[in-house]
C-alpha cells in the first residue's frame, strides 16, 4: 500500500520534472545570470571569482551559513556525553602513529595556506577550514586510543576560537557599516584593494576568509568529534 503510494508520488514527481524539462528545452533561451568573472578584479581586487562572490557580493549568505555551522556545532557539542572517549579498541601500529605525526603539520600548513591564499588561488575559508578540522579530527582519532581523552584541543578552546571568529566576522561587517555606508562593504570603506593577484589584495576579503576558516575549522571539528563521542 505504502509502496504503491510512494511509487505513484515519486513517479509523478519525475514525470512532472521531465515534462518541465521538455517544455523548457535547452536553457539557451533562458536569461543568463550576471557574469561576475570579469568585474570581480575591478570591484573587489580578488582574482578568485567564487571567493569574491562568497565574501563580498553575497557575504551575508556566508555569514548565514557560518551561523548554521555554529548552531549545529554548539547543539551537538552539548548533546555529546562527556564520558566516552575511546573510538577504536585496537591499538594502532607505530607506523601509523609516527606517520600521522609526520603528516599532521603539513595538513595544517596546507589548510592555513588555502585560507590565506583564498582570494588569489582555488580555496577559501570554507575549504581551508575543512582541512584544519580534518587535521584536528585525525589527531583525535589516532591519539585518543585507549580511553585517554587527549584530543588535540579541549572543547572549551575550540568554542573560544569559534566564538571569537564569529565576533570578528560580524565586527568586520560593521566596519563597512560605519565607514562605507553599507554592511559588509569592502571597496566602499576605502581600504586599499591592493594589486590583484598579490597576497595583500582584496581589501577585507582575506580577513573574512581567515575568520571564516577558523570558525568552520573549529565548528566542523566540534561536530565530528561530538558525533564520535555519541
Amino acid at each position: 500500500m505504502r509502496r504503491t503510494l510512494a511509487l505513484l508520488i515519486s513517479g509523478s514527481i519525475v514525470a512532472l520534472g521531465v515534462t518541465t524539462l521538455m517544455l523548457t528545452g535547452t536553457l539557451s533561451d533562458a536569461i543568463r545570470p550576471v557574469d561576475y568573472t570579469l568585474r570581480t578584479v575591478r570591484d573587489t581586487g580578488a582574482i578568485n571569482a567564487v571567493t569574491a562572490i562568497l565574501f563580498d557580493y553575497r557575504a551575508l549568505d556566508t555569514l548565514g551559513e557560518a551561523t548554521v555551522i555554529f548552531a549545529a556545532s554548539s547543539v551537538l557539542a552539548f548533546l555529546a556525553p562527556r564520558s566516552s572517549a575511546s573510538m577504536l579498541s585496537v591499538r594502532l601500529s607505530m607506523l601509523i602513529l609516527y606517520g600521522i605525526a609526520f603528516l599532521l603539520p603539513f595538513i595544517m600548513v596546507f589548510g592555513f595556506g588555502t585560507i590565506v591564499f583564498g582570494h588569489v588561488s582555488p580555496g577559501g575559508g570554507f575549504t581551508g577550514g575543512v582541512m584544519l578540522s580534518s587535521s584536528v579530527v585525525i589527531f583525535a582519532v589516532v591519539y585518543s586510543v585507549g580511553g585517554q581523552q587527549s584530543y588535540v584541543l579541549p572543547i572549551l578552546v575550540k568554542k573560544y576560537v569559534e566564538n571569537a571568529a564569529m565576533f570578528v566576522f560580524v565586527s568586520l561587517g560593521f566596519i563597512g557599516l560605519f565607514s562605507g555606508g553599507a554592511y559588509l562593504a569592502n571597496a566602499l570603506t576605502g581600504i586599499p584593494l591592493g594589486e590583484p593577484g598579490s597576497l595583500l589584495s582584496g581589501g577585507l576579503i582575506p580577513l573574512l576568509n581567515i575568520a571564516t576558516g577558523f570558525k568552520v575549522g573549529m565548528g566542523l571539528a566540534l561536530i565530528i568529534i561530538s558525533l564520535f563521542a555519541e
Binding site: V34, T37, I47, A49, I53
Partner: peptide, 15 residues
C-alpha cells in the same frame, strides 16, 4: 575555473 589571471579567457560562472 573562475580565477581571473587573463582577461581574454572564457571562465565558468562563479555564482
Amino acid at each position: 575555473a573562475p580565477i581571473v589571471r587573463q582577461a581574454d579567457l572564457q571562465y565558468v560562472l562563479g555564482l
